[in-house]
Design a protein around this nucleic acid. Structure first.
Length: 813
DNA sequence: AGCACGCCGACT
DNA sequence: GTCGGCGTGCTC
């Protein structure tokens, strides 16, 4: 008797693969096919992961329906998600969900999204033609335009607004083209070039709001219809058209890199290469040529980038070089767009996929090359279940597909560089910038000296102010980095010392200027402390609606109190500088400079980041202030100065990667300077200027940093010297969390192959109202840790529900 | 994740 | 006296 049992992964985070039977009347679905199954009182869609052989000791239920005769998710991607589920101790359903477009399983059965499309009607086309025929700037008079429009009689169920061209220029026209506003005319002009119409979302990005279309529709000039369209996610990457020079010969270093990498790609065996190329060394050109070679050999290429919205250049370059053969996957796309792209890939319409971390699961066939650009970037780690690291998943996918995996960075993670040193990866080094452009000179300013000279409130050092002034004078651009958003980091009482904390989390609230136009009174001259924030002195907190205290973890917000909530003293003082404060200082110091800010608050609106970045590219901005967002791989040739307001933010954190993060950030941001013809300069402000991560970023000496940091990790037994797992346990009180954590840790301590450290209260001891305790597993055997954890979490499901397991944690807060 | 069951506060 | 809060358990 042939087994008619299948394993099905269901979109339920904590559940393993479940066994169902296939009724005789149905064909056995292959791995990757979707099936509709009953689960308790529910009915949901799952993915077949394979045949189930065992004779179960529970009653097996029938599959309701087999949706796909063939794999919906490619079988190798199913295998990859099974590996992810195991490695990261997530349920197979959760891992599979990461590989599917959003709501593929949980949404409605219909997977098709429609777009509202606007197109010109006959009358609209007529009107657009007439408008186009008019010379620009001519005042349009009603009498010249014999188009008559009448309002809909409003019969229900019909398209409102029929228009009819009037035979002659007749008097008494109720409406005419002359009455069309500028927006409406613009809409007609834009639509005239799109015979089949344009999606309203596209139109709104081009400055035609939906209201205008509704109005034109009522006038009968535009017809609105709902249509299933192939959405083009590239329209939003308006920055696009970076200067691509495909004809240019690769540099000698690029040639050498390709001579090493291309043969590996031909070999069709699994191999990992680390490309360590300094900022501006032309890694992207290597990727493009390598991708071209692999694509020509009939195999697929997967390109992972940290965040497309931040670095649209790489995607745009690939799109420019390879055109429609490229698909894009990232979180900035609408659900419909992501869905479309996923299906394009699955159908085999493309052979190159570019995307953020989730694209590592793209349903691309015959993968021959996987590129992980900026492999050090923290955004490759997903901080929700399944807590996978896309770089590591990429390596595993390469292994399963016998593909070449290329990891690229100017500041590789210790993990990757250690693998290269150990010979597990090959190492390709590009240690010069293209065209022999020098790396930026980096200076470190000791802020203690500045404080001594200028007072405790100094934000911009004399060196940074002078350098900014020089850039403005020369018409060059500057980036100013501070990796902390908001205006001030905390508010505290100078009488009793109490700080204003989040009621739900164990953190101080951050002061924001709020969404209002309000700018802090920054009337000070050079060296003044424009936004010195004391409530009694007219700073924030005097009931000004612009000032808010916000929690960056749970979004709690309150007005900044003017008196101390504890002792009622009116001496609330702000401490710690954020990007909003930096912006205020710079605007005060350079009132004529064109300044913009980029951080998560400033770019909340869709497209505003792209707009700001393109303003930099167009030289429409002099100074760009921002968080690490501005440190990513941008290529702005006229930026000759990078200022770092404080390099110290990360160094105080109780995180063993603090130094590595600081070194990476400083090296990367310094790499934004001097990429064009003029040399660049970076100035780093710090209270601990002699810290090795700062000093080695100054000399931009990766190798020395690597050796030094590896020594530290070895001595302290931290990754990559050992493997680590972090377990966070939650409870209503800290003692409850600690009790649970102790019980779980005790179950693990009896095992061999690793050690258990803790439990202890987590650094963020309270988060969103929950108390948190944590412990670590450290050891050389991931298998031992995984098996022990699986056993412990299964044995104590009551504890497991309050525990979160993070394998290879990137942050231990 | 849902959805049910099951015990403790403020209302018809 | 009930409605409903979410803690706990279960889903092939």
């Amino acid at each position: 008797v042939v087994s008619r049992l299948v394993s099905v992964a269901v979109p339920v985070p904590t559940l393993g693969a479940l066994t169902y039977s296939i009724p005789d009347a149905m064909p056995i679905p292959p791995p990757g096919a979707r099936v509709v199954v009953p689960l308790g009182p529910r009915t949901l869609t799952g993915i077949v992961t394979g045949l189930a052989s065992a004779t179960p000791h529970f009653k097996v239920r029938d599959v309701h329906r087999v949706i796909d005769a063939d794999a919906f998710v490619p079988p190798d991607v199913v295998a990859l998600t099974e590996w992810v589920a195991k490695y990261y101790l997530a349920g197979p359903g959760a891992a599979l969900a990461a590989a599917l477009p959003p709501r593929a399983l949980t949404g409605r059965v219909s997977h098709f999204k429609t777009s509202r499309v606007a197109a010109l009607t006959a009358a609209g086309r007529d009107a657009a033609d007439r408008l186009a025929a008019l010379p620009r700037g001519v005042d349009v008079r009603a009498a010249d335009l014999p188009v008559r429009l009448r309002r809909s009689r409003g019969r229900t169920g019909t398209v409102p607004g029929e228009a009819e061209p009037h035979p002659t220029g007749c008097a008494g026209l109720p409406r005419s083209l002359a009455s069309l506003g500028a927006r409406q005319r613009e809409a007609l002009r834009v639509l005239a070039s799109a015979a089949r119409g344009l999606a309203t979302s596209v139109l709104s990005e081009r400055g035609v709001p939906a209201a205008t279309l509704t109005r034109l529709s009522a006038l009968g000039l535009v017809a609105l219809r709902d249509e299933q369209v192939e959405r083009d996610p590239f329209w939003r990457a308006a920055l696009a058209s970076p200067e691509d020079e495909p004809g240019r010969e690769p540099t000698e270093a690029q040639r050498a890199a390709l001579d090493h990498l291309v043969p590996w790609a031909w070999r069709r065996t699994f191999h990992v290469a680390l490309v360590h190329g300094v900022t501006g060394s032309g890694k992207t050109e290597v990727y493009l040529r390598l991708a071209d070679a692999v694509r020509r050999s009939g195999r697929g290429v997967l390109v992972l980038v940290p965040e497309i919205a931040l670095t649209p250049q790489v995607a745009a370059l690939f799109r420019g070089r390879f055109g429609a053969a490229v698909a894009i996957q990232h979180s900035g796309l609408s659900m419909g767009e992501r869905h479309d792209q996923w299906h394009r890939i699955r159908r085999g319409d493309v052979d190159i996929v570019i995307g953020t971390r989730s694209a590592v699961f793209a349903p691309l066939a015959r993968v021959g090359l996987i590129i992980v650009d900026e492999e050090h970037d923290a955004s490759y780690k997903q901080e929700e279940i399944p807590r996978y690291h896309a770089r590591d998943v990429a390596v595993m996918r390469g292994k399963l597909a016998s593909a070449l995996v290329v990891l690229g960075s100017a500041t590789p993670t210790l993990e990757s560089y250690a693998n290269a040193q150990a010979g597990r990866y090959s190492l390709v080094t590009l240690d010069r910038r293209v065209l022999e452009r020098p790396l930026a000179r980096v200076d470190v300013v000791n802020m203690r000296d500045e404080i001594a000279a200028e007072g405790p409130d100094v934000v911009l050092s004399r060196a940074v102010r002078a350098a900014l002034a020089a850039r403005l004078e020369r018409g060059e651009q500057a980036l100013v980095l501070l990796n902390r958003r908001g205006f001030a980091a905390a508010v505290f009482c100078r009488q009793c010392g109490a700080s204003v904390d989040c009621p739900n989390c164990s953190v101080a609230l951050t002061v924001h200027t709020g969404g209002s136009r309000f700018r802090p009174a920054a009337q000070g001259a050079r060296g003044a402390t424009p936004a010195r924030a004391e409530t009694r002195a007219g700073g924030p907190g005097r009931g000004d609606p612009g000032w808010r205290a916000r929690c960056h973890y749970c979004n709690y917000a309150a007005d900044v109190p003017r008196t101390c909530p504890v002792c009622a003293a009116p001496y609330m003082t702000q401490v710690g500088v954020g990007t909003e404060r930096v912006e205020a200082e710079i605007r005060a110091a350079f009132p004529h400079a064109r300044v913009a800010r980029v951080d998560r608050d400033a770019v909340r609106r869709k497209g505003s980041l792209v707009r700001t970045l393109s303003r930099v590219a167009r030289k429409d901005l002099d100074i760009l202030i921002g968080t690490q967002m501005i440190a990513k791989g941008h290529d702005f040739p006229d930026v000759t100065l990078v200022g770092v307001i404080s390099a110290d933010g990360g160094l105080g954190l109780p995180d063993f990667r603090a130094a590595e993060r600081t070194f990476q950030l400083l090296t990367q941001v310094a790499g934004r300077a001097g990429r064009g013809e003029r040399a660049g300069e970076a100035i780093i402000q710090s209270l601990v200027p002699h810290h090795y991560s700062i000093q080695l970023a100054r000399t931009q000496d990766y190798r020395v940093f690597f050796e030094k940091e590896m020594d530290f990790r070895r001595a302290m037994r931290y990754p990559p010297h050992v493997a680590m797992v972090n377990v966070v346990v939650r409870g209503r009180s800290l003692s409850e969390a600690m009790t649970r954590a102790r019980a779980l840790a005790e179950l693990l301590r009896s095992r061999r192959g690793f050690v258990v450290l803790g439990p202890a209260p987590a650094p963020l001891v309270r988060l969103r109202g929950e108390h948190r305790a944590q412990f670590f597993l450290k050891g050389t055997s991931r298998n031992a840790m995984r098996e022990a954890l699986e056993a412990a979490l299964t044995a104590r499901a009551d504890l497991a529900r309050h525990a979160t397991v993070d394998v290879d944690p990137q942050t231990v807060l």
